[in-house]
């Protein structure tokens, strides 16, 4: 997902007997669906896990601007250019909302940014794949945003108030993203033979990376169990992946495109599709920095940050001078 393999305390869920009275009261609130707010007492592990998760989610939005931004200058019509620009702009907005939510936990946006740029914090593996033809912009909206929405919709109910509110705003804005992606795919799939080829090529390249977005199976993970008890993770990775496949396969069929999986087959008994696992060794390679675009993505963010330093400093210096002049005049 946009936040993948987030580590929690690593100790698993504490039994009630092992909890301090504060921890018991905290867990009771979470269980009763009462939101945790910034100044409420919270376990240290909850705070740290949330910072990691929300921060990674925010970084993913910002790095996620890059593969789609790659096609703004080449969008084929004025309208497509505006839609794409508005969409990539929304990603910047989502990053901003999420950084703001993280900031309520006692970390600054600059600290989070530096952790991203130094490689200390990660972003979603999916954004390390390239966008090579125009249909990729359709595929990103359809598959990547589609997968993200699977996770983001339930997160609107997450226990941490500011995170939940950010997710509500994001989901509201996100609803046009997946549709615009599918709209591009429809045009391409119904278009010229070359356009159909682009559409199939995009699906071929983005299918497995999209499945990887949910992360490896976490049914046995102690981190996930703790995160689910705290309601900062709502479903298991496998549940979401299954739901995504079940939703997406008929959409691909409607487009007349072939999902690149020979083992894909409807399973009447479970009421869902059987499908092949992605190559998890590739996933771990990408996380380690060896995806096709890791270097380009991080370099782009480093450049934006370093080249922007004088701008941030300059505008702040002016604001401080202006305030000082105002005081002097009074």
């Amino acid at each position: 997902m946009y936040a993948q393999m987030v580590k929690s305390t690593g100790e698993g869920v504490k039994s009630r007997d092992d909890m301090s009275p504060e921890e018991v009261a905290f867990q009771d609130k979470v269980d009763a669906d009462i939101k945790i707010e910034p100044r409420d007492w919270m376990p240290d592990g909850y705070r740290k896990t949330l910072i990691r998760q929300i921060g990674q989610h925010a970084h993913s939005e910002i790095v996620g601007q890059l593969p789609e931004g790659n096609w703004i200058a080449r969008a084929p019509t004025l309208e497509r250019k505006m839609i794409l620009l508005a969409k990539v702009q929304d990603e910047a907005g989502h990053g901003l909302y999420l950084y703001s939510a993280a900031e309520t936990l006692g970390v600054t946006r600059d600290e989070l940014t530096e952790a991203l740029l130094s490689g200390k914090m990660k972003y979603s593996s999916i954004f390390n794949y390239p966008t090579l033809n125009w249909a990729d912009i359709g595929a990103v909206g359809w598959l990547v945003d589609g997968a993200a929405i699977m996770n983001q919709v339930p997160l609107q109910r997450t226990s941490y108030g500011p995170y939940s509110r950010a997710m509500i705003r994001i989901c509201k804005e996100e609803s046009f993203h997946q549709r615009q992606g599918y709209d591009i795919m429809m045009k391409m799939a119904q278009g010229t033979p070359e356009q159909k080829k682009m559409a199939q090529d995009a699906l071929n390249r983005f299918w497995y990376p999209s499945l990887m977005m949910f992360g490896p199976s976490d049914a046995e993970s102690v981190h996930s169990a703790q995160s689910m008890a705290w309601k900062i993770k709502i479903n298991t990775n496998d549940e979401l992946r299954q739901k995504f496949v079940d939703q997406t396969v008929p959409q691909a069929e409607y487009l007349g495109l072939t999902v690149p999986d020979e083992n894909l087959k409807w399973n009447e008994e479970k009421g869902g599709y059987d499908f092949s696992e992605p190559d998890w060794s590739e996933f771990f390679d990408v996380l380690k920095g060896n995806g096709p675009c890791n270097n380009d993505r991080l370099n782009a963010r480093v450049n934006a940050w370093e080249d922007g330093q004088w701008v941030r400093d300059g505008l702040l210096a002016h604001a401080e001078k202006k305030a000082a002049r105002k005081v002097a005049a009074e």
Partner: peptide, 11 residues
């Protein structure tokens, strides 16, 4: 509705 960063109130 949320937060943001800015050098001063006008911005």
């Amino acid at each position: 509705v949320g937060s943001l960063h800015a050098p001063d109130a006008e911005m």
